[in-house]
Simulated scan of single mutants.
Amino acid sequence: MTSDSGDGVLVVGGGVVGLTTAVVLAERGHRVRLWTRDPVERTTSAVAGALWWPYRIEPRARARAWALRSLDVYEELAGRPGVTGVRMVDGVLGETGLDEVAGWATSRLPGLRAATPGEYAGAGLWARLPLIDMPTYLPWLRERLTAAGGTVECRTVASLDEADAPVVVNCTGLGARTLVPDETVRPVRGQLVVVANPGIRTWLVTTDASGALAYFFPQPGGLVLGGTAEDDAWDPEPDPAVAEAIVRRCAALRPEIAGARVLGHRVGLRPARPTVRLERLRLPDGRVLVHHYGHGGAGVTVAWGCAEEAAGLV
């Protein structure tokens, strides 16, 4: 399909995957509209931590390739952190060895090294990775889309049949479960606590002895503490007991967190799928439908690489 003025592409879904895909398409010359159920500031993506690292996403090889392409973009955007919300920040990937990331990560991130005992009391990797402040980044992405001529409309879609364009890109995430329908899309519930930062400048991702997640990310709006990964859990409301456990796990890693003032709670439902669905279909009426969903907990991490591949299918 050519990208002349008569070429209309409708992207359905305003999370980070949908927004990024719309930006790539618009900047390649397509006339792009984006429909989003919620304002971008209230999408699942807005809840994300959001550290660049492939997490809960398959197929692994393709996800790593998408992630590395996205890394190129984030490194460039980190040159304007106040505008884009992207910063390069040091931290530790706990319970991870160099052998586990050999090849794909070590060749691209030459600064990767084993964490010292003073940095982490266990086996871990010290890394400098993109850390994205989503309340800044998502509105910036929306502005980049409109600057490229795209439009954004808040609209709830009950069926993809409502999509009135010759090319439709389905980036509805968890919504694809009913819209496609695709019952292989399942929620993985994540709960976070935001506290006033007691002076922590590095991030940490690890698991405790029971296998529970524990992580903290220093963001401009506070220290983001996590977290959970509950399969097939649909509750969008924060659980006070879960919040207390999150703070307790993080305080075991950095004691100063224990007394930090709580600023807020977040819950997001990650759109998990056995594998990302990135597929071009020709509909009976001749229109093109590109499915682009199922990114699990790695939507931010793979967004640019995956969006470019999706745009190539248009």
Rank of each mutant, 00 (worst) to 15 (best):
L281I: 15
A123R: 08
A61E: 10
A78V: 01
E237M: 15
G149E: 07
A123F: 14
A114T: 12
R249N: 07
V194T: 13
I200G: 09
R108E: 06
E309L: 03
H265N: 11
P54W: 00
D231A: 10
Y74K: 03
D285K: 04
L129I: 10
A65Q: 12
V276M: 06
P110A: 02
D182N: 14
R108P: 13
A243R: 14
V185A: 03
L93R: 10
V288C: 10
C171R: 11
L174Y: 08
A310V: 05
P39V: 07
A158C: 15
A258P: 08
A209G: 14
L138Q: 07
A127D: 03
G305E: 00
V242A: 11
R60P: 15
D161M: 07
E58Q: 13
V276C: 08
L125Q: 09
G150A: 07
L283V: 15
L109Q: 11
E95F: 15
T172N: 06
E256T: 00
R201I: 06
W304F: 06
T43W: 11
V300I: 11
V167Y: 10
F216K: 09
R87A: 08
C154I: 14
W203Q: 02
G15M: 00
R142P: 13
W104T: 12
D38S: 14
V32A: 04
E27K: 10
L289P: 04
A46P: 02
R189Y: 01
V169A: 09
L179V: 04
R128L: 02
P274L: 02
R177L: 02
V193T: 06
W126T: 06
H265M: 11
T228Y: 07
V205E: 09
P238L: 02
V86E: 01
G259E: 01
L145V: 04
E27R: 06
E58W: 04
R113L: 05
T116W: 08
A114C: 15
T116R: 04
